[in-house]
Design a binder for these strands. Sequence first.
DNA 1: CATGAATGAGGGTTCATTCAT
DNA 2: CATGAATGAACCCTCATTCAT
Lengths: 242, 242, 242, 242
Amino acid sequence: MPRWGRKDMANKDLLQDHRTRVGTERREKTRARLLECALLVFAEKGPGAPIIDDVITLAGMARGSFYNYFRTNEELLDAVAAEVTDEWLRVIDPIVRLDEDPAVRVTCGTMLLLRVMRSYPLLSAFLSRMQIPSAGRELLGMRYLTRDVLAGIERQRFAARQPRAVIDIVVGAIFCAARSLSQEVLPDDYLDDLVLALLRSLGLTEDEAVRLVALPFPEIELDDQSLLKRTLERAEHRGAGA
Amino acid sequence: MPRWGRKDMANKDLLQDHRTRVGTERREKTRARLLECALLVFAEKGPGAPIIDDVITLAGMARGSFYNYFRTNEELLDAVAAEVTDEWLRVIDPIVRLDEDPAVRVTCGTMLLLRVMRSYPLLSAFLSRMQIPSAGRELLGMRYLTRDVLAGIERQRFAARQPRAVIDIVVGAIFCAARSLSQEVLPDDYLDDLVLALLRSLGLTEDEAVRLVALPFPEIELDDQSLLKRTLERAEHRGAGA
Amino acid sequence: MPRWGRKDMANKDLLQDHRTRVGTERREKTRARLLECALLVFAEKGPGAPIIDDVITLAGMARGSFYNYFRTNEELLDAVAAEVTDEWLRVIDPIVRLDEDPAVRVTCGTMLLLRVMRSYPLLSAFLSRMQIPSAGRELLGMRYLTRDVLAGIERQRFAARQPRAVIDIVVGAIFCAARSLSQEVLPDDYLDDLVLALLRSLGLTEDEAVRLVALPFPEIELDDQSLLKRTLERAEHRGAGA
Amino acid sequence: MPRWGRKDMANKDLLQDHRTRVGTERREKTRARLLECALLVFAEKGPGAPIIDDVITLAGMARGSFYNYFRTNEELLDAVAAEVTDEWLRVIDPIVRLDEDPAVRVTCGTMLLLRVMRSYPLLSAFLSRMQIPSAGRELLGMRYLTRDVLAGIERQRFAARQPRAVIDIVVGAIFCAARSLSQEVLPDDYLDDLVLALLRSLGLTEDEAVRLVALPFPEIELDDQSLLKRTLERAEHRGAGA
DNA sequence: CATGAATGAGGGTTCATTCAT
DNA sequence: CATGAATGAACCCTCATTCAT
């Protein structure tokens, strides 16, 4: 009865497949849960703080489970940073690349990042907690910003000359803005003025800076499945539950 | 024998006084020693790292003695930050106040701070280790810089309008510069270009920014008794000894 | 349709039987695989070391599967010890029993055991890892050795009188020899001299001891299906694979 | 008033000295307490067992205190083993060296060790717990025994020829005897017969072996301050208290 | 019966702080 | 006020075992 035999095999394979799929899904879900909780806790406490305990408590899982996913504190944070950065780059880079002009690109990248940070203070808090030296320049597309700034200097689109100086200004401004946005409610024109000042510092004329800032950049909408969104939802539940 | 008695008393008082004075001096000296070591260790290891052990080892004193001077870890760091800041302000503020123009003041304050940070990577390292949110805006005369920036905006000496945006740029740049200066050797024009760009961001014209940066600011010479100098000397000895 | 029904039943029974048999075989095979890996790992790491992870990795099976065969760690080790001992006794006891003389028996049992340990350092390593108190006296036919020693004392074939003292010497020597054989390459006459000294300690004359040691004991050849052989083969594969 | 000055100095020095002495004493006492408890626990549980918890509970001290003295489990055990061995050697070696004859030395060393082990089952238990490979041959003067055995073989005082074989027998016998003595009450002639058999195994004649065993070796009395004695006292208190 | 994620008890270690001397 | 042993809370991490699929 080869038909049965085949069907048996098929059943077995299907079962195997189903099991594998279910297992993988569960694993992914748990990992995602850890990342969400880590983002939350990390934004609150900053790096260097002992975090694992808080994370697993928040995630409602056992101590040992943590170590099935991350071996250290740091590995966890790296994973969070990488995830946040990846998500952001997937959203922002295609938009930034729509225009070739480095000035537009820098304006666009900076503006959209600042707007998202204003919309999501959790993101601001997270970013402001990062030690500038360690991960700062890799985070959230800083590297891409840097790329565009350098391009602008090279092509003499910007009057500024020392690339390092300019980059320190831009990156520093974003970090400080992250801190400000995570701690206070700022006036409406804070963002525009910040970007305006940054463009001035690059050596663009006032007129051009004003024009660039006024460009109609698209509104960014984060995917509901993004780490940031999921984390916020979790935070609300916790807030409601607590 | 009142005479004797009085004389005894006088002797005793004098002795007492002498003892008190000697005691106070010794106390100050020990405290100073702790601050030096703390500055060194903190600049090396950053916040969150366990430091007390290193500090007392470096200072060659017993664990318990530490607590005769500082009740907690944090108190120690606050004291270091306060001392560094005080020393800096005592040096810098009189110079900055020589000119009434907020633009000159900001240029002068920023330039001299950056120059000192370049001369003393220890200072850069210390500053770059500070978490921006906590102590950042009080440190090293940031508050005075802020004062001058605000004054310039109020008097419309600067084109920039949102004070908070401008301050975030200036403070952020200084922090990032601290990191850069503590980690790498930068080109000679890094400092000038950085200040130039900051002045541009404030809305000064290119010409004026160039003029300001070129002003002949005095060379700062730190007091040999300053915490920074003493710490460096200690570091050398340690380096030589190790 | 009883006929069909019966036939179906018959088919089903046969099928059931076949399944059962195949199942049992597979079960035995898996169990055997675990024993091999456990022997290997235990000989390497000794007691007290965490072994389950290594065992299942080596066996290429899932963590949970282990517990379908052994309820605990300890049960596994007991099973390995029992299996090794059983195999050894099945080989050795018939040979030892060929002669009635306790002196010949002790000589034969000891000599053959030592020879096998020299040929298979894995066995030496395993034995030397066992805690003497726990399993020592049951292991590898120690009990039979003991039996023959006691018989010899009872029949005054040996001059020695305190059975316990003699047994401690023999068992202790074998354990120490296991350690030596598993760690170093020893001179050719090590084994003969060891047995000779043991026979002396039993109170045999030098002449007789020499004669006994020189007896032409058969070469032991282990069954290829024995745990020890299978384990060695596995070890080679691993060695080659790694 | 130089006299006063001097006296002050003297006072200070005395005080300093007193403090140092008191501190050192306390430290020594605590360390001693840990060793006692470790010996007790170790004799009970064997190596590889998690021990620190038990030790500090028994010693009635805080978890952290342990780490002021030993960094790991193993370091603690090494210290215990070293202390026990040192104490034993200080007692035994002078006695053993009274005679030049290797046969007498081996007899004396073995006999006295076995007698002490019989008197102090704690010592037997400790020794029987040691893994033979690791520390075995350094422990409790095994090295000295070895030395004497080798000397005897070299000078052909013993008929035995393979030194390694003989040493494995002697060391193995002592370990097994340790186990036996720690677990059971043995007949009075157990010790004598054991040593007798060992001497036989070395190739001494029966007559000589009998003569050697019958030599009037001095009774060993352990110092009340020895680790073993202190540990026993502690054990009694615990027994009484529990 | 296989699987492997989840568990959590158990043990290890650090380090800021206290306190008797 | 110096000293440094003692403290213990807080963390870190492993690994035998369970259990839902």
